[in-house]
């Protein structure tokens, strides 16, 4: 007999050998919490939203200097415009993320299910990139603003020779770069671990269609 036929015969025969759960045993199972990848992804995306919002908000409450500066800035039109559009962008991300979560359905085909999960992850990724981009701009920008405000610092900087200036610029670039690099690596590892298997399986399915 062909091995596969033999296997099929055994497969059907072994039906009786599984643990047969009673209704009383199944009830508690449906009350338990899922530990699926979608659930984890959901928690991570919420954590990310909250984290970046806090990064923007916390300094305002912690430092009275910063608060004063913000209050001064808040009279400028460009500042109001930036803040408002910032909130619009965050609201937009939240909306897209929500929409994307609602399209994840376990009753879709395997390929479609994987695609909707990967799309959701992509939205979170764009959100992170957006924030890193803001960080990339705001670190040099805040240094520039500091120069404008702080006369003493401004004089010191203007008295620098070209070597010192180069070091200062290099330092600012390094700090910005390091900040972004650390975050980037962190995300790579986080999502790398979480989605490794899903990505592998998705590639396998996709390979079939090429």
């Amino acid at each position: 007999m062909d091995e596969l036929e033999l296997l099929k015969k055994d497969w059907n025969r072994s039906e009786t050998s599984y643990t047969n759960y009673s209704e009383a045993e199944i009830y508690p199972m449906i009350k338990k919490k899922s530990s699926s990848i979608v659930k984890t992804l959901f928690y991570i995306s919420i954590a990310e939203m909250v984290f970046w919002i806090l990064i923007n908000v916390v300094p305002y409450y912690l430092s009275s200097n910063y608060r004063k500066e913000i209050e001064e800035l808040s009279h400028h039109t460009w500042y109001i415009l930036l803040t408002v559009s910032g909130y619009f962008i965050i609201a937009g991300f939240i909306w897209f993320l929500y929409k994307s979560y609602t399209t994840i359905s376990v009753t879709d085909s395997a390929k479609k299910l994987m695609e909707s999960i990967l799309r959701t992850r992509k939205i979170v990724k764009y959100y992170v990139i957006y924030n890193l981009f803001l960080a990339f701009i705001s670190i040099p920008l805040s240094f520039y603003l500091m120069l404008q405000e702080d006369q003493q610092l401004a004089t010191e900087v203007s008295n620098m020779n070209s070597g010192q200036m180069a070091i200062l610029i290099a330092l600012i670039t390094a700090v910005t770069g390091l900040f972004i690099f650390v975050f980037w690596i962190f995300y790579r590892i986080l999502y790398g671990i979480l989605l490794k298997r899903l990505n592998r399986n998705y590639q396998e399915l996709k390979k079939l269609e090429d």
């Binding site: 530990s35 699926s36 990848i37 979608v38 984890t40 376990v106 009753t107 879709d108 085909s109 395997a110 299910l113 994987m114 999960i117 979480l194 899903l198 399986n201």
Partner: peptide, 18 residues
Amino acid sequence: TWMYRVGLNTAITLYRKN
């Protein structure tokens, strides 16, 4: 039939090994 699909989807995609 519905169970086949959800079962396989969970095994292939959603399940995270404990």
